[in-house]
């Protein structure tokens, strides 16, 4: 009788599993069809770090360099000089997004609230060098800020990253056109 009981138990166990799969089969799917549909990310969700500006469009960054020092992977590159009023003027602010690990420490340590984590995350590009984002690009994304800074993050306009990237491409072409001596791969970086 032990065998029979075993068989009955097995059949019941297997039948239960089939009940579950049948039930789930009839349920609506949970898939989000990604490129067509996008989830609404919560504010503070960490995409690429961007530079914020005040109402006049001037960068809040004071070139103090704390973010550069505190970045665990050292991907931030800042160049500045002393202006006429002895204040630092930001010349270059590059972030190498190919090495950035989106930890958000730069936004956290910034005493002026000049860096925030945006909700832009689609970083595909054709050239490795294009993954280094420059001051103007970071500022352009930061200017489309839609929400106040929450959890060191902001929301930006949908698709702004693509626009910025398209802008860079055309700018690179116009820059490369007169100066034919510079190699084209460097053209986009040196502007």
């Amino acid at each position: 009788m032990g065998v029979l009981k075993n068989v009955v138990n097995s059949v019941v166990g297997i039948a239960k599993g089939h009940k579950v799969t049948l039930k789930e089969m009839l349920r609506p799917t949970v898939t989000v069809m990604y490129p067509q549909e996008r989830l609404d990310l919560p504010v503070g969700s960490r995409g690429i770090p961007v530079l914020l500006s005040d109402e006049q469009g001037n960068l809040l960054c004071t070139s103090c360099g704390v973010c550069e020092r505190e970045c665990p992977v050292q991907v931030i590159h800042i160049v500045s000089h002393r202006g006429e009023d002895k204040r630092k003027v930001l010349d270059e602010f590059d972030i190498d997004m190919s090495r950035c690990m989106f930890c958000g420490i730069c936004a956290e340590v910034c005493a002026f609230g000049a860096i925030a984590m945006s909700d832009q995350y689609e970083l595909d590009d054709f050239e490795q060098g294009d993954l280094i984002y420059h001051k103007d690009q970071l500022a352009a994304i930061g200017r489309t800020q839609r929400t106040p800074i929450t959890n060191y993050g902001i929301k930006t306009e949908v698709g702004v990253l693509d626009q910025v990237r398209a802008g860079r491409a055309s700018a690179a072409q116009t820059a490369a056109a007169p100066a034919t001596s510079t190699p084209s791969s460097e053209g986009s970086r040196s502007e």
Binding site: P42, G44, S45, R46, F102, C103, G104, E108, N151
Partner: peptide, 19 residues
């Protein structure tokens, strides 16, 4: 993600508290 900002690499704990 809602609280820490990330789904896997949280970087959430801080010395003395949380982020």
């Amino acid at each position: 993600e809602e609280i820490t900002g990330a789904r896997m690499m949280y970087n959430y704990m801080r010395y003395g508290g949380v982020r």
